[in-house]
């Protein structure tokens, strides 16, 4: 069986050279738009074949939405970010994903920073959001996509703030670029595990199977309500 993954793609142009962008990247926290980012650590780093490989661990807060307040206390979400920087091709690729609770909502985000002809830097940001919660997958994915899009501008604003502070006189490309493109596709397909319903009968009629499957889905959702509420409030 396959698990559907919603995808979203955004493009942002930063009016700074690729060199400035990658230098600023390692210093982008804290900024006024990133108050939800609590910690940031480099846990692996090496130069291989002239490229810089890094792995970082970040923790971010979870503001509790009103409807989730009764379920759980705030627990920071852990995020792993792998990146590879190629100084020759002038490309910088980051890949982030959440640690834990991935059956409820798995968010993989890829950002590629590359140099433009006019000297500015293009960031292409793609998200792949999947969920294995039976009966609620589409709703969870839709929520994830909306959250991803809403956070895109915020992240760009925060990064621009850092760039302005670090390189106040280094604008390129006329300083007129805006958030350019957002495209969303509802469902790609990703192989994953299935939720199976086992019964003692050996065979069930359609109605029985549906009821049984719905019950499993409902029980799963209920037992993970706090985690789902928590994920729904994650900021990128």
């Amino acid at each position: 069986m396959v698990v559907a993954a919603s995808t979203c793609r955004t493009e942002t142009v930063f009016d700074y050279s690729w060199m400035n962008v990658v230098v600023a990247y390692w210093n982008r926290y804290p900024n006024p738009s990133s108050t939800h980012v609590l910690t940031e650590d480099t846990i692996q780093r090496e130069v291989r074949d002239g490229k810089l490989f890094s792995r970082r661990l970040l923790s971010k807060t979870n503001p509790v939405p009103k409807w989730g307040a009764r379920f759980y206390n705030n627990v920071p979400v852990k995020i792993v970010e792998d990146s590879v920087l190629d100084p020759v091709k002038k490309t910088f690729t980051t890949f982030t994903r959440n640690l834990g609770m991935t059956k409820i909502m798995k968010v993989d985000e890829i950002v590629v920073y590359s140099e433009q002809k006019d000297g500015s830097t293009l960031a292409v940001r793609r998200a792949y959001i999947s969920s294995q919660v039976f009966g609620f997958s589409r709703a969870i994915r839709a929520f994830g996509i909306e959250r991803f899009k809403a956070n895109g501008n915020k992240a760009s604003n925060g990064f621009n703030y850092v760039l302005r502070r670090m390189f106040p006189d280094s604008l390129v490309g006329g300083g007129h670029h805006q958030h350019a493109v957002t495209t969303t596709s509802p469902a790609g397909e990703l192989p994953a595990t299935t939720i199976t319903v086992s019964t003692t009968n050996g065979s069930l009629n359609n109605q029985g199977a549906l009821k049984s499957a719905a019950k499993v889905g409902y029980e799963f959702f209920k037992s993970h309500a706090s985690k789902i509420a928590q994920l729904f409030s994650v900021k990128n």
Binding site: F53, R55, S83, T93, F95, I110
Partner: peptide
Amino acid sequence: YCTGSEYDNA
């Protein structure tokens, strides 16, 4: 290290 290459053909 992983950079999401499994999504490259998306």
